[in-house]
Design a protein around this nucleic acid. Structure first.
Lengths: 232, 232
DNA sequence: CGATTAATTGACAAAACTCAATACGAGTGG
DNA sequence: CCACTCGTATTGAGTTTTGTCAATTAATCG
């Protein structure tokens, strides 16, 4: 997948005007990369907060980001993880209803929402892509609802591993940038249940965990079967 | 809320061309009402199926619709309920990933997706509204994820009742068009848990149920508190 | 009024959660 | 290079919530 580096990207102001001419039917990601300014975020840093005005649209250049909502009593739901190449910040019209934090040290490209909208007004293809991305996020959210509503712990973990594998161009293993607590809050489980379920899958020979955040698939078919009948 | 009747709506072919001129900055709902054709669906009838090409965009005129996904083993997740005035069918780009069924006898207005898109190309305001509606659906889906991920049965039921009340212009009561099974599949619970939880709320004096599908709020503040810290 | 579907209730089982203790691992300083 | 520390992850024991299966009651429709 895309692995943007700020060094290889022309600086914003220089490229701005020219870019828009060059990309009349531009890929959204390209345009964001060219129009946007790159920012670094440390592990745990907040990219935007709940109730903050939604002024920018974002793209992960490197690292990983979580979209989360925290409750008064400490419960937390993670709505999505964003990996390099992913665009986010589309889920708000006026203000954000979730916050976004950097899971590890990350680089994120920011574009003014107003600039993208202005571009979309002129370029129908751009409008179509912005809408399409939003529909894509909606489908992911629906797919996630499915998982949260009716899957047991093992099915959730299996679905999660397959999802992450599908989003990395992985051989037969996944590198997890997020903690067990993040996974738990994404899947609607406790950290203990996540841990036990992973251990059980390892005992069953389905996966191996050389280190806790690197998971090797020994029997991808078995994982597939746990997902049976559901979209990823 | 809107309570469209097919009789009061000009027939499609007659009004089509004129309509578009009349509504240069039209409300999306208005335009759909004027451009669309009205169809009746019996209770339980399928409006569109999973994997079907997404050819239309829909608006509920009367009745109620559920968006659902069925598994091989019989588990079902309901992703959303649509009530009069609600627009749906935006969650797909090419093909539907959920099916939609009429919960009771309903009337639904259909518009060719291509016609709306063509309109959006000409009218930026229309494009903005289509995108905005999609974002709205995404926010609802995220809010629903939250509920499914971390709420207990009582909190889910309370959230559901408040949501439905908010969507009907209701005094202190809700009329539920859907069965207990539909509610259960929406909330990620079993029908028995839904039933028991409602009974418990009635015992506690929070609600009354003169009949099973009509729920009166005796203590809305108590319901509110069960929702504490969460968006509806 | 009887038949059929929808909803409730009860008794028990299972899955996941809670609380507490222990182990692992990365980073730091001796 | 090793020992120490702190955050992260795993494991265990016991509890709670929700699910399952079965029976009963209520509502709806001819």
């Amino acid at each position: 997948m895309l692995q943007w580096r700020s060094e290889t990207r022309p600086s914003r102001n220089a490229a701005f005007a020219a870019t828009l001419q060059d990309a009349p039917t531009g890929q959204l990601a390209e345009v964001i990369g060219l129009m946007g300014a790159c920012m670094k975020f440390d592990r745990g840093a907040e990219i935007f907060a709940e109730d903050e005005a939604a002024e920018y649209i974002y793209m992960v250049a490197s690292g990983a980001v979580r979209l989360s909502k925290l409750l008064s009593d400490g419960r937390r739901q993670i709505g999505a993880f964003y990996l390099p190449g992913d665009i986010f910040g589309l889920e708000a019209e006026e203000t954000h209803s979730f916050s976004a934090e950097s899971i590890c040290d990350s680089q994120v490209v920011l574009v003014k929402r107003s600039a993208l909208v202005a571009e979309a007004v002129r370029d129908g293809e751009m409008a179509r892509q912005l809408w399409g991305k939003t529909v894509g996020h909606l489908q992911r959210a629906q797919s996630h609802m499915l998982l949260l509503g009716r899957k047991n712990a093992q099915e959730r973990i299996a679905a999660f591993l397959m999802e992450m594998a599908g989003r990395q161009d992985s051989d037969g293993s996944v590198e997890l940038p997020m903690s067990r607590q993040d996974i738990a809050d994404y899947l609607g489980l406790t950290i203990e249940t996540v841990s036990r379920t992973l251990t059980q899958l390892e005992r069953d020979g389905v996966i191996s965990m050389p280190i806790s955040r690197h998971i090797v698939f020994n029997d991808a078919a078995a994982l597939d079967k746990m997902n049976d009948g559901w979209a990823a």
